[in-house]
Design a protein around this nucleic acid. Sequence first.
DNA 1: CTAATTATTTATGAATTTATATTATGTAAC
DNA 2: GTTACATAATATAAATTCATAAATAATTAG
Lengths: 106, 106
Amino acid sequence: MPHDFKQIYASANRACSFLKVLANPDRLVLLCRLAEGECCVSELESALNIHQPTLSQQLGILREEGLVTTRREGKHIFYRVISLESIAILKALQTQFCKPRPPEPH
Amino acid sequence: MPHDFKQIYASANRACSFLKVLANPDRLVLLCRLAEGECCVSELESALNIHQPTLSQQLGILREEGLVTTRREGKHIFYRVISLESIAILKALQTQFCKPRPPEPH
DNA sequence: CTAATTATTTATGAATTTATATTATGTAAC
DNA sequence: GTTACATAATATAAATTCATAAATAATTAG
């Protein structure tokens, strides 16, 4: 047990809390969309085909965990990504999992 | 609903399965250790202070998900990381969550 | 000004899944 | 037989997801 055991686990725990937020397909797609630029809830809804309260729940999680923030404009609420960690990890995930796919046989 | 909706979700689902494997402090610490180089179970055990069957369970998950592979040498079994995705994401996580911490007041 | 409508959040709860720990047993190499 | 590791079985707890319903806030219509 190395002397920096606690610090390693402290980092691991922080990273894990973050990873758990990302580890949901809806939230991940939401974040990817938001990473491209600010977006209001109804736009996200039409982009995602999930029920609106469910969407709002997932957005709530992203808010609570500090990955995004909001701004009201009239009836609409606009979301945007504020966490630098999110942007960095999303970029890495996209590189690994959204590569141009091999040409499909038909 | 954009035309590439299915493909976006296919990527998101693959990324999520992967993220779920990483989203556990023990597995994350294990992977970080293994990313530094091959390591046998007993070394991992003494580095992690978790019970052997628990460790073995976690290593089993990493194996099943294709993040690591093993090699036997006598009584010992050596693990190493084989997934390029793992290496890339671990590196990104380390950059974001294992930065040199701000100097502590004492 | 009031009522209705739109946009979004919050609350509640059931169903399911996932996680974790423990104890015990199995196996391969020595 | 012992060491190193894996597997199985089980129990328990905790978290996640999703649907339904109710609430709030801003806007529009009458």
